[in-house]
């Protein structure tokens, strides 16, 4: 049998040149997207840090070394530490109910969960003042029992919880609905109790949605300004959160100090992002598998 000795090129077919009506299209789109990101996300972040450090590291640290700033950090963390778990508990219960049961008022509940998204945070704060304030609906009763809600930590926690209400629930309700009830039923036949089903099946099933919900909720809880600003009374060093402290400092022309505090908030956001990335990396196998399943169905 004769073996051909021709070079491979001899067999190649001349491909017609692919038509490119707009050859710079992809490059242009990518540049636009990146430019937009740089302008609106990266640049402000850089400005925050550069302004904060404009008078040198010593001044930066001095601006932060202030009991009022410590108090603001503390209050911000406390508010988040209460509001986020409260919304996790509520979100999981709501998702569980909505995905498992058909009940009257189910659609109303779904709509109500979105309410805080559509109401301006300032209005939310105002509503609380009207409810709990001295001249509010419950004000006189609270006053008689010496319970202070408005212009104090409880009011700020309530306002933050209200504003961040939808973040966890909105993230996991669609997930719970999509995943259905099959795995829970399988767990029943395998002899798991209701408690075991919840902790070993229902909750883990939702854990990635829950994680994103918690991170978003936390970011918003720490950065919330409008509602908290209305109910806090802005008593510097007493009811100031980090975001309120930024405003007070800025208003009193302590620009560099304001940016120094703002940089703390920015760093909290960055830490959150890193945490999320680290978790995703650690569970990359499972996440990859779950995502692939999603794509396949």
């Amino acid at each position: 049998m004769a073996v051909s000795t021709q070079p491979i090129e001899a067999y190649l077919v001349n491909k017609p040149a692919r038509e490119k009506p707009f050859p710079w299209g992809p490059a242009l789109l990518i540049t636009t997207a990146l430019g937009f990101m740089a302008l609106f996300l990266v640049l402000p972040l850089l400005i925050v840090f550069s302004e904060a450090l404009s008078a040198g590291l010593a001044e930066y640290l001095a601006a932060l070394d202030d009991p009022n700033v410590f108090s603001a950090i503390w209050i911000t963390l406390i508010i988040a530490a209460i509001a986020v778990p409260a919304n996790v508990v509520f979100g999981v219960i709501a998702a569980w109910c909505i995905a498992r049961f058909e009940f009257s008022g189910r659609n109303l509940l779904i709509t109500l969960i979105d309410l805080p998204f559509s109401i301006s945070p300032v209005i939310a704060g105002l509503l609380e003042v009207l409810l709990f304030g001295l001249n509010g609906l419950l004000g006189p009763w609270l006053g008689n029992h010496n319970i202070q809600i408005i212009f104090a930590l409880p009011g700020m926690v309530l306002a933050t919880t209200f504003v961040t209400f939808p973040f966890v629930a909105r993230e996991i309700i669609p997930l719970a609905q999509e995943q259905g009830n099959d795995e829970e039923e399988a767990a029943v036949t395998l002899g798991a109790s209701g408690f075991q089903i919840f902790w070993r099946v229902s909750l883990p099933k939702l854990r990635w949605g829950l994680l994103y919900g918690v991170l978003l909720c936390n970011a918003r809880a720490m950065g919330e300004f409008g509602a908290v600003s209305v109910v806090s009374g802005k008593i510097y060093g007493l009811t100031d959160t980090l975001s309120l402290a930024v405003e007070s400092l800025y208003d009193s022309y302590e620009i560099q100090a304001a940016f120094a505090v703002a940089s703390l908030l920015a760093m909290l956001a960055l830490v959150t992002l890193v945490l999320k990335a680290a978790l995703e990396w650690r569970h990359r196998d499972e996440l990859h598998a779950v995502r692939r399943k999603k794509a396949a169905t």
């Binding site: 099959d182 795995e183 399988a186 767990a187 395998l190 075991q196 883990p204 099933k205 779950v290």
Partner: peptide, 24 residues
């Protein structure tokens, strides 16, 4: 019970799926 669409626990490995009844 073997379910129509298997209803395997998606967040568990094959081993943990089979082990579930023993673990609970």
């Amino acid at each position: 019970f073997v379910f129509q669409h298997y209803a395997l626990f998606r967040h568990m490995t094959v081993f943990e799926n089979v082990a579930f009844a023993l673990r609970v």
